[in-house]
Design a protein around this nucleic acid. Structure first.
Lengths: 347, 347
DNA sequence: CTGAAAGCGCTTACAG
DNA sequence: CTGAAAGCGCTTACAG
């Protein structure tokens, strides 16, 4: 079975021409006669030639340089793992990834980093925009300069980015609604706690939730929507007040990553753990702990690993051979974490 | 930032010795003086040398040949995708994967294939044993001959396989129990339908389910356990009988992949869809359809993609540099598919 | 034990 | 437009 691979040399010998000419024909390079080219292509086809990528790498010494700009929180670690895994056995001689860390919601810092990245030579950029509008100009600037940009985790929809890679926030909201509906067996009264009601991703996570309830669980009612400004303390006092004032609340839906800790504390103090169903986002350690002690009923994850993997894959394929992503929005898995499977999802 | 990579040539020049000698020192090859070797290693360290894998690939022409033996059902497609994705930009000149298809439960055919694979030269084998005991001898034989074997999807625990890659069936059963408990709000009566009660994986999926209920939902009772012999028709009549004889059944837990279709038909005829909670395994098209029309409440997936990916990764690393897998059992994700997120899990 | 040289499959100046 | 040759970084017979 050791069928030797066909090489350019084989084609050259079969045709009695030079290897350089074969290469030129194969790659559509300038300065080659139409007839020779035809002959080479035909022979290549006949012999079943396919280029040896390894050799190409070696001789071109090509290295794709990609800059990733994201907040440095815990999701990031997983994103990084995923990005690296794209390389598998290769090393950074082939794809070089440079990580730049911003703070959450810090659009100013993000702009600075983006500018400095543009000043240096990069072949592609992945960024999680803190603010879709503020970053838009810089993204478009990069694209105009021929540097592809993908948004990951958060989007800047109106920009000229190659694509968005991350969760579909409406579907994520819907699944939260489905979980709530199924846990409450189709009946009850719930509240929603969001970070900032005017931030798009939060708005959509609420829209999806509402849609799902209206369509499939009409007897579940949304009592009220609250903002905790991504602050655990605020989430705590909101929950505390609700528990005191309203006795009929059976579920809490949080669209914010920092909220669960505060909500959990309030529930524990009121000894309501488990009897009130809590559904929230992102596999942070504190949240996982609460899932395990049943303070939280379900956590929805957004598969940061694939976000990293896809970012590199899509940028690489576009940079190397202009291949377009399969879609304008590449949605990652919506994971459902319960007490019993959460470890298998975060390992 | 274009810091040129350090090569063997650089080390040779710095030390005024030949490149062959540098290579010998770096790779611990025979026939080299102790002092020279020390010097080379020290200099390599000083200059920050790291080998160029690309060049190594090219010159050695090394190709790792891996045979995968699995049933050819639908899970398989995903396994294949995952396996291929390990290569990323590389092609089969580096890792060559040969697929061999058996039928489910056909241990005889599997043995034949395994024998023919052993007769040819392969560097590693991945297999999903239909029967853990029957295959054991052949697995051990391969390992004795120096060919590493991993089991994927199903295990042969007593064999000398390198490791098992797949779902942890106890955890999978537990999560089914958790879902049932949460959907029934901790109270009710359920039945279990399994394929063959004496097949290990099914036994463990039931054990886990039972454990979870006993620990966290003591007021949910298992009414009875039935065998459908992986046959949709049997599942149908079992369900039909149950629905007629017992009015208080509120949940059905299936450990078998072919059962859901039959159960669903019986439920539809009895107009009990949705009111009886059905929890089952594996993202087959029919099952997904029933999830979407709410005949089935939740489906548990075993991440076949990672099973493929990990199989190649672990075999490759062992073959190329004797690296052992992280654990004797590499457990893949336990996915929970509901109506709203199932598409994101199977795409 | 060490060196000089060929070669893996490709690309790319450099001649002509 | 085409060819001859060098070279990417490594490994491996072959001499000595």
């Amino acid at each position: 079975m050791l069928k030797k691979n066909v090489t350019q040399k084989d084609i050259a010998q079969a045709l009695n021409i030079s290897r350089g000419t074969v290469d030129r024909a194969l790659h559509n390079r300038k300065g080659i006669g139409e007839e020779v080219k035809e002959k080479v292509l035909a022979k290549a086809d006949e012999l079943g030639y396919s280029p040896n990528i390894i050799a190409q790498f070696l001789v071109t010494g090509r290295s794709v340089n990609i800059a990733i700009i994201t907040p440095g929180d815990l999701l990031w670690k997983k994103v990084k793992q995923g990005a690296k895994s794209f390389l598998s056995v290769l090393d950074d001689r082939v794809v070089n990834i440079k990580w730049h860390e911003t703070s959450v919601h810090d659009a100013v810092k993000e702009q600075e980093i983006m500018k400095s990245v543009l000043a240096n030579a990069v072949d592609g950029i992945g960024i999680a925009p803190a603010d879709p509008e503020i970053l838009r100009t810089l993204i478009d600037e990069a694209v105009k300069a021929g540097i592809p940009v993908v948004t990951l985790n958060t989007d800047s929809p109106k920009s000229r980015r190659l694509c968005y890679i991350g969760q579909d926030p409406i579907s994520a909201g819907r699944i939260a609604g489905e979980l709530m509906g199924k846990f409450l067996n189709g009946k009850g009264r719930v509240i929603v706690i969001t970070a900032f009601a005017n931030v798009l991703v939060h708005k959509l996570r609420i829209d999806g939730f509402r849609q799902e309830l209206e369509t499939h669980f009409p007897r579940i009612e949304i009592d009220s929507i609250h903002e905790d400004h991504d602050n655990s303390e605020e989430a705590y006092s909101i929950t505390k007040n609700i528990l005191r004032e309203k006795e009929d609340i059976q579920g809490i839906y949080l669209t914010t990553g920092n909220g669960p800790a505060g909500v959990g504390r309030a529930l524990k103090e009121a000894r309501k753990c488990g009897s009130i169903k809590v559904i929230c986002f992102d596999f942070f350690p504190e949240t996982i702990d609460m899932l395990k002690d049943s303070t939280v009923s379900a956590v929805i994850g957004q598969d940061p690993y694939s976000q990293g993997y896809q970012t590199i894959k899509i940028l690489y394929e576009f940079i190397v051979d202009r291949r377009k992503p399969p879609s304008d929005s590449v949605y990652t898995r919506i994971d459902i974490g319960l007490r019993g499977n959460i470890d298998s999802l975060v390992s």
